[in-house]
Amino acid sequence: MGGLWDAIWQGVVINSMTNGLLALYDLLFNNFFLALAVFTLITRLVMLPLNVRQQRSTIKMQQMQPQIKEIQSKYKDNPQKMQEEFQKIGYSPTEQLGGCLVLFIQFPIFIGLYRAIQYVLASSPQAMFELSERVWLNVFSLESVTALLPVKNTFLWLNLAQPDPTYILPILVVATMFISQRLLTPTPQTTKNKKPAKDGKKEPEDAAASMQKQMMYTMPLMFGFFSLQFPAGVSIYFIFANLISMLQGWLARRSVAEERAELERSKAAKASESALSTAGAGSSTSQNDVAESRPPSTKKAKRKSKSKNR
């Protein structure tokens, strides 16, 4: 079983990535920086459906927190009713597990990428020999591999096979990861004036929010620390991946906000229709009066939607 797993891991994951990276290096004018950028983009595109789904789910969950909390406190003694209410607002606790799944899928890909980058940069004879064992000679000819290797490992001031001695890349890793984490982890809509629980303990949601906040700071620092030890090529991968995550996060936020605004608009339209029909049935009221007679909640929802769109 171990042998099979090793064959899949080494043969399918790492070798595919190593050869893919090498092919891009070949196509992109033997520029490893460009190859790395396009490679990150491709892997992120492959993961895009899963990532967007996870990001949208995270943002939606965060935005639903006030309603979830309300339902939880209202029906804390009636789990069945609680579940029904959750279903009504479109909340599913199992959906949160999907986020973990995405992480679990991403992690081996990330490690595979890290190894592929190290193999392609081949900074010692042994590493070069291992690379030669991994190159698919039915895809590349021996002549083309000979022409490609060793990969030119210098870019600007960097030796891509060594950590960046100027600290610029580690700082960029921390900054981009922090921003991307911030975009992916919207500020929870917890009430500022909320009193602490009687026993002094934090509410579970507060604990989760606090954990997310801690992660928002510790993850970038941890990856920044990794960047001090790892080849600059890996740091560049981190930076590209973070930039793409930032873009994804921004798109996911915008799409959730639009969806929400759409929902609010349709709710408002429905409410207005029902108000019209009620007024039509009772007396001959003017159009302006109908507008004035809209329930306050609808107006509030509109304002909320507008502010979100902004």
């Binding site: 490690i111 890290y114 190894r115 900074s123 010692s124 004879p125 042994q126 590493a127 291992e130």
Partner: peptide
């Protein structure tokens, strides 16, 4: 544990 430094070593 997964990454290690194996790729950087030599004979």
């Amino acid at each position: 544990s997964a990454c290690g430094i194996q790729a950087n070593t030599n004979w």
